[in-house]
Design a protein around this nucleic acid. Sequence first.
RNA 1: GGUGGGGUAGCUCAGCUGGCUAGAGCGCCGGUCUCAUAAGCCGGAGGUCGGGAGUUCAAGUCUCCCCCUCACUACCA
Length: 637
Amino acid sequence: MADRKEKYYITTPIYYVNDVPHIGHSYTTIAADTVARYKRFKNEKVFFLTGTDEHGQKIQKAAKKAHITEKELADRVVQNFKNLWTKLDITNDFFVRTTDDYHIKCVQKSFESILKKGDIYKDEYEGWYCIPCESYYSELDVGKEHLCPDCGRKVDLVKEESYFFRLSNYQDRLLEFYESHPDFVIPNTRYNEIKSFVKSGLKDLSITRTSFDWGIKVPNDEKHVVYVWFDALLNYISAIGCNEKEDFNKIWPADVHFVGKDILRFHAVYWPAFLMALNLPLPKHIVAHGWWTVDGKKMSKSLGNVVNPNEIIEKYPKDAYRYFLLRNVPFGLDGDFSEKEMIARINSELANDLGNLLNRSLTMVDKYSSSVVSKPNIITDKSLSNMSSEIFEKIEKSMQIFRFDEALSYIFEFIRDANKYITVKEPWNLKKNAKNDELQEVLYNIVSSLKFIAGMLVAFMPDTAKEIWKQLGFENSIENYDLKFFTDFYSITTLKVQKGGVIFEKIDEKKKKKSAPKKDSKTEETKKSDKITIDEFFNVDLRAAKILEAEALEKSKKLLKLTIDIGEENPRTLVAGLKEHYSAEEMVGKTIIVVANLKPAKLMGIESNGMLLAAKDGKTVALLSPEKDVKPGSKIG
RNA sequence: GGUGGGGUAGCUCAGCUGGCUAGAGCGCCGGUCUCAUAAGCCGGAGGUCGGGAGUUCAAGUCUCCCCCUCACUACCA
């Protein structure tokens, strides 16, 4: 069975269509695309999958709000993703949608098969339901006081018939598997996290719902709809034939599932368990990457700093964007996106080091050798050739562990070597002194280096590689050449170069100004949709409150217990997460502003009645307080 | 609180199983070539390698304690 596998199978997560594509989506997809291209470059057969997750309550809600059907909504958003992937030249072989027929059938079939086996069973799901949020939470989520983790309101205990997946049965097998496959989860710290999560115990998983119906119906029990992960994860097999078609075994198991760290658990715990239940082999690697911050800040809609890849690639070359994302962050860690840094890299690495190397080299070939280089009979200086083999080896190692940043740094190390070589050899002097043989060799070495560089870049910056290729004067496109043509440094016999334009323009900071108004208009948009009426505002009862006592809670990292006067008969107790910013002593006597009509919450065993207002700016937290003395209990508004 | 990472030049980070005067890239300063996108190349700038103690002939590199930070988890916003 295993022998039938023919293709390197690589996937991105399927993206939820309740969202517009942002830098994070593009990063995962570009990373996967890079591996796909790299494998193809090495003459391996590849199957590269991406797609969309289109079911669930959120979509149902959003569609209702927009007065369209769920499918119409999904169709619309899917197009956003597809368009972006086209623009980024993503080379996926297929695009899976969870609303496609084959997927629905696959989920139903898989469900039935596990049901038959006994690892799916019907029971009652007891969940805590928050009506306003329309969401279920576990006992753990809601805590002892049964409050919604999102809005803080009381949740109701709801019993609902549900099908469960017997995840608890798989705990030992999973742990065994992790032990014997230490590179199953990459990077290592994530591997440790997963292991300890599973060790701490697994509960059976509720995998159906009856409370909404935008989803895949459970066979023979149609009031149930398959819930999230059992639907979504199966895309990885539904897209390639669901263990039915001839080709399935040529592709499955997946070699790499690329995921963000937020959905690692589902891929590294649930998914292998589902596969075990289906008697299918497990994927080779789950590779989890970090988050992107923007200019050091967390990306969020409210900050209005969500990076839209479409806007970036309008302003900068697509390859520069790919390069920056892949180069700037060690895979697995969180990365920071800033246009300033991206411009710095474009200018110094792409324009100065690489672009200029191509440019100066071809100019010399034009000037000194009528645009033609040929392989000399004897090559005396093989330093660049030797370095290229070393570099390629290093790149290989880095790519095996998905360290794109390292791989790129090696390529650019070689680019610097080539620049150095030119400086040392001084072709202009060879020309002046009519040392033609030596000059020919030097030019040949340089052009061969560029050939090597183009090959190494093909996975990371496809456009750039192609452009270099064209300027080097190759008649066939770069994809037509075998790996050997690149690893064999002296594979060029003769070449007439076709010098073209500059491949990376230098960017001055002026470009940045253009982005400013764009950001503003975006913020306005979000503001518009978020506007509330005055009545809605006054639903919140804001009051001035005087702090009578304050006490730091010993066991808590963040919490202070405050006793406050808001003009009521008895003082109230309020617990606030301020310990890291204010000491208990300095709180006493202050007049602050609190939300008085918030439902009580129990924190560290103490009931908190209300919430105080504070301004947060990344690290700084500042309490709001009335500018003049007012009576405790004064209304704000 | 538990677990697992980190804390090394202004910035981003390399430094494997302990061993010559602690490295790279960027930024900065100075020099230099001229084929080139005022690019390239060379040199410099000097960082208590988080703090303290210990092991050793020898410690960013091992041990212990402490501080800070990040992730996961718990608890909780």
